Simulated assay, not measured.
Amino acid sequence: MKRIVVLTGAGISAESGLQTFRGSDGLWEGYAIEDVATPEAWQRNPVLVQRFYNERRRSVLEAQPNAAHLALAKLQEAFDVQIITQNIDDLHERAGSRHVLHLHGLITRSQSSKFPWLTYPLEGTEIRMGELCENGSQLRPHVVFFGEPVPMLEPAAEICATADYFAVIGTTLLVYPAASLVDYVPAGVPRYVIDPQIPDVRDHSFIRIQEPATTGVLKMIDDLFNG
């Protein structure tokens, strides 16, 4: 079975009603990134950071997978679909995708603030101050803050190196280190990029589908079977 590696970004979740992390005004849901999504923000005001991500988690749990998520899950009937997502929501999993690697963490889990390898499934929508990991440190969202290492980058690169097909959906390919994953895809592998605003991809061999994910993924699938 041929393997297609799919790198997804905020654009695919935006069609389920979830805000992209940074709007045109530089804010995320009305908050400055520096105030809610950095290690310094956590040290300075953990209550605010916790509240911010509790709000985001509620939004994620209210959202539903859209046609793009569902189409990628159905594609597993014919391909070994490996999804690498920059998104912290669980919409791919809820759509039925079996192999999902979260580069930036998963908001429906918590992690120790001192021992980041300790992560836990989260019941409900909130992590409360005073909730501790097994080693006694405060639990925080299981997300990679800006400025923190991306521990899943190396496994993601290894997956990209095994691709028979590669697709980029709903991401600008301008945010590093995630954008560097393109460099690990073997030469000659067919590559797709799907977005209403096609990013200035360095590799001009990309097949460009300038549409939202919900319609663009269906066109890519048609091309995979009939192209």
Rank of each mutant, 00 (worst) to 15 (best):
K74I: 13
D80Q: 15
N66C: 08
G96N: 03
S137R: 06
A68K: 04
R44M: 02
Y53F: 15
Y53A: 00
L91N: 11
R98V: 11
T38W: 00
Y120G: 02
E134R: 12
L70Y: 05
A68S: 15
R44P: 03
P65T: 05
I107S: 03
N45K: 05
C133A: 07
I107D: 05
R44Q: 14
Q82G: 09
S59W: 05
F52E: 02
W117S: 15
A73I: 14
L72M: 13
D89Y: 03
N87C: 03
R109G: 01
G136P: 01
L48E: 07
R44L: 01
R94E: 07
A68W: 05
N66V: 07
T119M: 10
Q64H: 12
L122K: 14
L122V: 04
P116L: 06
S97I: 07
L72P: 06
S97C: 12
N45R: 10
M129Y: 06
N54F: 15
Y120N: 06
L132P: 00
S110F: 07
E34N: 10
H69K: 07
P39I: 13
L72E: 11
V49G: 12
V60T: 04
G130Y: 08
N54R: 08
N87P: 00
S59R: 15
L48G: 02
Q111A: 11
A41T: 07
V49S: 00
E131L: 02
D35P: 01
I84N: 00
N54P: 06
L106C: 13
N54L: 09
S110G: 10
P46E: 00
I84Q: 03
I33K: 03
Q43T: 09
L75Q: 10
V100M: 10
H69I: 14
Y120V: 05
R51G: 02
H99D: 15
R109S: 09
M129R: 14
L48K: 09
R109W: 12
E134C: 11
A67K: 07
Q86I: 10
R109Y: 13
Q43C: 06
T38L: 09
I127D: 05
H92F: 02
N135C: 01
P39E: 11
